[in-house]
Design a protein around this nucleic acid. Structure first.
Lengths: 340, 340
DNA sequence: TTGTAAGCGTTATCAC
DNA sequence: GTGATAACGCTTACAA
């Protein structure tokens, strides 16, 4: 169906080795031969088979990307960054959405293995949090014998390069902003505390509170799980049934912020008036919808680019020491860190 | 590095053909041999090389997906639908974001061609709208000799299966809702009128207006281009400098709706009070943010699933007649189709 | 029921 | 400078 290197060789009246040399710019080729080959390539609209090349070269030009929540704005933006670099390098991106499901993730890893990709970019599915699950994931990943870059969610005790976020600092800055905003009582809707990123953000909260000698009150610690629904339920119940509403809130990721906002909006409560709040991570469309919501920002697109660049670097320098890129957290004020 | 079929054959003490037969469930294999092979496969954690398989079978298990705007919620959701089916079928998804850039798209098509994919899902980049550009795209696509499914944006006079939207009806329903809402003057922020989907939506608007004997007033026709920025500028200028503000608006895609809303929010104008509006396509987070905004909805996730299913169907039935799937448009009222 | 061998479209190693 | 030829890891007649 498609033309092969032999068709080009025939058409250009040279051997396929010469065609290959021209295409790969390797070895000596006379100007004449080069022209003939290029002409034939153009005329037949020939593009070499990546499969055949991969097989022959024993390496592909393909990277795998496994992402857990395509509906989350954060990952969409991340993917754009990844895609950008891949395109520029003329590589190919193989994508799968693991939907935070370890089973799906395991399947995807098999697919990735079958594709003999050059490397893998992975944000682990939520579930990998217990020691045991964690070890299993590490085992699966090691079995790939591949350059891997872990993004956003760290895998404890793992050897791979990482692109992470200043999680502690994010929690710290958010809390600090609320304290400076004059809030006396500050609550937090945590993430899934099985995940390190959730614990780190929480630790940042604790640290800021302690620094200011504010007593940690357990009734203000709300156990979320990084989903909008849970945050919504927590918030709704809180404002309905309890007088234990703190002045200010830290919401630990964009999904939680969304759930939190939804509940407060339903009750006609105004951020920056009826309560104070600082979220971690930007919410999509917040600017467009003119929604007042102070948050801790990071450059997600850049995270994607960095991750892919590190992966490429790693595949060229396999013995280099472990690389870690930690994206800074930045407080963006839209006024909601103060109450009233 | 990775194990090969020969390693399995050696370990199981059979020939590689037998291994292949077991793996592919083809031909006769004794129970004994099967067990030995499976054992070896498991022990060595063997996964066949998709590249070698593809080369040998002269067909891959891979589909290409080219999408023009990953930042648009519509396409994210679409991608989820595509991804779902791909995963279930044990296929592999190769992804590229063309960023509405024909040059990038052309590059991506070359990449796709090199990968010898089984088929291609494509939403063409915006630019392909002039007759000439259109023909060029058709030529490029034909040169692929591949099953192709065109999604959302039709390519006129093209032979490929399509999954489209009731564009005319969307414009019609939106306008009708505004008319029923009692609005006397109704404007429209159109999409990029080079695109058929924009013209169809506009035609729906015209039709509804005529049906109700409402005069079309050119000063209420605003030439947008499906981007938020343009809609924002149009809306901003309109409310600032002109007394020619219609009672109601049709905004022709979600990006335009976002830009429109942003401008009105900035001016503290309230949908359903200061003006009426019905948008085409859902805006992300509209429910969560409790933003009143009536719109014309479609099941985007399903569109993705359908598209991939059609692609698979097509690759199994190459001679089947052209398939067209048109997703229905449904009006969702959140009250903003009325003014005051 | 199993193994041998040719072939898939490349690259790479050699002679020439 | 160039062209055979082996090799990459698999599938698939065909032979046994």
């Amino acid at each position: 169906m498609d033309f092969t290197i032999i068709d080009i060789a025939n058409k250009a009246k040279v051997s396929k080795s010469t065609v290959s040399r021209v295409l790969n710019n390797s070895g000596y080729v006379s100007e004449k031969a080069r022209e003939k080959v290029n002409k034939a390539v153009k005329e037949l609209n020939y593009v070499p088979s990546a499969m055949a090349q991969g097989l022959s070269k024993k390496t592909s030009n393909t990277v795998g990307v496994l992402i857990p929540e395509l509906q989350n704005y954060f990952f969409t933006e991340l993917l754009q960054g990844l895609s950008e670099v891949v395109d520029n390098k003329g590589m190919t991106l193989i994508f799968s959405d693991t939907a935070n499901d370890p089973i799906k993730q395991e399947k995807a890893l098999l697919m990735i293995k079958g594709q003999r990709v050059k490397g893998l970019i992975l944000t682990p599915a939520n579930e990998y949090s217990s020691k045991k699950q964690n070890l299993e994931l590490i085992k699966s990943l090691k079995a790939l014998h591949l350059p891997i870059v872990i993004v956003d969610r760290e895998i404890p005790d793992s050897p791979w390069d990482t692109v992470l976020f200043e999680n502690f600092n994010a929690g710290y800055l958010a809390t600090k902003a609320l304290i400076k905003g004059g809030n006396k009582t500050i609550g937090i809707i945590t993430g899934d505390m099985n995940l390190k990123i959730a614990r780190e953000r929480y630790d940042g909260y604790l640290c800021a509170m302690k620094e200011h000698n504010i007593e940690i009150d357990k009734k203000y610690i709300f156990n979320g799980d990084f989903t909008a629904n849970t945050a919504y339920e927590i918030t709704k119940n809180l404002f309905e049934n309890s007088s234990n509403v703190p002045d200010g809130f830290v919401t630990c990721n964009n999904q939680s912020s969304i759930g939190f906002l939804r509940a407060t909006l339903e009750k006609n409560l105004k951020a920056g008036k009826d309560f104070a709040v600082v979220g971690i991570d930007k919410i999509n469309l917040i600017k467009e919808f003119n929604i007042p919501f102070s948050y801790i920002n990071r450059d997600t697109y850049l995270m994607g680019k960095k991750a892919m660049e590190i992966l490429i670097d790693r595949s060229e320098n396999p013995t280099k020491e472990k690389m870690e890129c930690i994206m800074p957290a930045k407080f963006v004020s839209l006024g909601t860190e103060k109450k009233k």
